[in-house]
Amino acid sequence: MAPSKTFFSNFRLSNIVNLLLRSLQLVDGLVVIGLYGIDLNRARKEDKYSDGKWVYAVTVGSIAAATAVVYAFVSVFMHYRSLTFLFAWDWVLMVLWAALSGIFGTMYLNEKVEMEAGIHRMKVAVGFDLAGLVLWFVTAVMGSLWFFRERWGGRISRPGKA
Rank of each mutant, 00 (worst) to 15 (best):
G127Q: 02
R121K: 08
E116Q: 08
I119F: 01
F137I: 15
G29K: 05
V27D: 02
F104P: 04
F8H: 06
V60M: 14
V95E: 05
L93A: 08
N10C: 05
I33D: 03
K45S: 10
E46N: 13
F73G: 15
M115V: 02
L35R: 01
W89D: 02
H120D: 03
R12I: 07
L26E: 05
W97M: 15
A43V: 10
L35M: 02
V141Y: 10
F104A: 10
V58Q: 12
R22M: 14
N110R: 06
M107W: 00
K5D: 07
L24Y: 14
A64H: 15
M94F: 14
V76S: 14
K161C: 04
P159H: 09
L13K: 13
R149D: 12
S157Y: 08
V17A: 12
M78Y: 15
L96K: 04
L130E: 09
S62N: 13
G61V: 03
V134W: 05
F148S: 05
V134F: 11
V141C: 08
Y108C: 02
L24A: 14
V55D: 04
S50D: 12
R22P: 00
S9A: 14
F128T: 06
H120E: 05
L20H: 03
D90Y: 00
V95W: 11
A43Q: 11
I156D: 04
S9Y: 02
E114C: 06
N41L: 15
E46Q: 13
V58P: 05
F85V: 00
V27C: 07
N110F: 00
S82F: 12
I38Q: 09
L13C: 11
Y80R: 03
P159V: 15
R158I: 15
K161A: 09
D28V: 11
E46K: 13
W97V: 02
Y36R: 02
A88P: 01
V17P: 01
W136A: 08
S144K: 15
L21K: 09
L13Q: 14
I16A: 13
Y56K: 00
K5V: 05
G61K: 04
G132D: 03
Y80Q: 00
D129R: 12
S23W: 07
L133N: 01
L93W: 02
V58K: 04
D51I: 01
L133E: 01
L93S: 09
G118S: 12
F148I: 05
T6P: 00
S62M: 12
V55A: 14
L30V: 14
T106I: 04
L21R: 09
D90R: 00
D28W: 06
K45F: 04
R151K: 15
R22W: 01
I16D: 01
F87W: 10
A117S: 15
G153K: 11
L109P: 07
V27N: 01
R81N: 14
T84Q: 03
K123Q: 05
L135G: 03
N41Q: 14
T106R: 13
R149N: 15
